[in-house]
Design a binder for these strands. Structure first.
Lengths: 186, 186
DNA sequence: AGAATAATGTAGCGAGTGCTACAAGAGGAA
DNA sequence: TTCCTCTTGTAGCACTCGCTACATTATTCT
């Protein structure tokens, strides 16, 4: 009777493991995520991680999903809706924001996961799809006024900024900025 | 005297190991590249790989560099210089080309390596930089006529197509195509 | 209370990791 | 021939991997 059927008490402890493991993933990447280091980061044991999450793959997927939700919330707080302003300045602002040390690891994670998908390993397909959808719907809400199909406009904005960020992360910041300057120079 | 000092005979065998190992990297990714599977793919032993390349990290870097060169050459053969035509149709053609099963694994590899760089692990920074530079200089040669700074135009083209491909690989082909359609709709 | 269930620690298995010590074959140089 | 360097196979080391069997405690229900 004291127990709420919709929220079993034991799940609370389990969910508390997610943030430190997410932090570990951000710092080290999916490829370096093995049970024992993850457990150490979360202050528990590999034994318990398997007990709570079933397997390492299920664990990583859950942590990535949790991270995806978190990023969307974080962006919502950082960037208010732009009722005016140019697409060019918005794109630059977004580029600088995602470049920052705070958000850059998230992007690295997205790229790592997308690389898996590109190779046909669908382990994290849902994750990458949700991340892209999150960015896209967030852009629909927050980007400056556009003409024509706003869905396409948001996809365009996302592709442009992500493409620039890809060049930047690959060590070619100058190319990235040139691309951005040209993309919305109407 | 029979030995040519500028081309030691033993190097020939060594370089013959590169193609099969590159194939392995394309199919399985850097994260899955360990010595014994690589050796099996190349028809030799882990012992020999370390003997020839010094260490696993040096090996992978060399294979990636070899691949980077190969892609540039491959693109040069596939796409002749476009002296006329629109940027929009060129971008679409490039998108479809890089999406193909033949080239998609190369992109997956680039993303995986770029993810490393984004996290500050500089192991493969030279690789990612060379790949981006290769694509860029190739675009400068081959893309249709542009107005203004052609370096910036090539960077813009590269960012747009790569951004679209990123969404595509993440499972959102529709967004990718919308972005492309809008990017060069002048 | 006792019984049932959930949670956790300990220890380990079999496989795989990068890498190396050692010895032996191969081939040319003296 | 003997020597020397290059190349290669065998065997293994110390380690990590995901995961599990087993036992033990903690909690909750009756």
């Amino acid at each position: 009777m004291s127990k709420d059927a919709s929220a079993p008490k034991r799940r609370i402890d389990r969910d508390a493991l997610l943030p430190p493991m997410a932090q570990f993933l951000l710092e080290n990447g999916v490829h370096a995520a093995s049970l024992r280091p993850l457990a150490k980061a979360a202050g528990t044991s590999d034994r318990m991680l398997v007990y709570h999450f079933g397997s390492k793959d299920a664990l990583v997927e859950e942590v990535l999903m949790w991270l995806a939700d978190g990023v969307q919330a974080q962006l919502g707080l950082l960037v208010p809706a732009q009722r005016e302003g140019t697409l060019a300045s918005f794109a630059t602002m977004l580029f600088e924001l995602l470049r920052q040390p705070m958000l850059r690891p998230h992007l690295a994670l997205l790229m790592e996961v997308s690389a898996f998908c590109a190779r046909g390993q669908d382990d994290f397909r849902k994750v990458s799809e949700q991340v892209v959808d999150s960015y896209h719907s967030w852009l629909m809400d927050v980007m400056p006024p556009t003409h024509g199909d706003r869905t396409a406009a948001a996809a365009h904005m996302l592709a442009t900024v992500e493409g620039a960020l890809m060049q930047d992360m690959a060590g070619r910041e100058a190319f990235a900025r040139m691309a951005l300057d040209r993309a919305f120079a109407d």
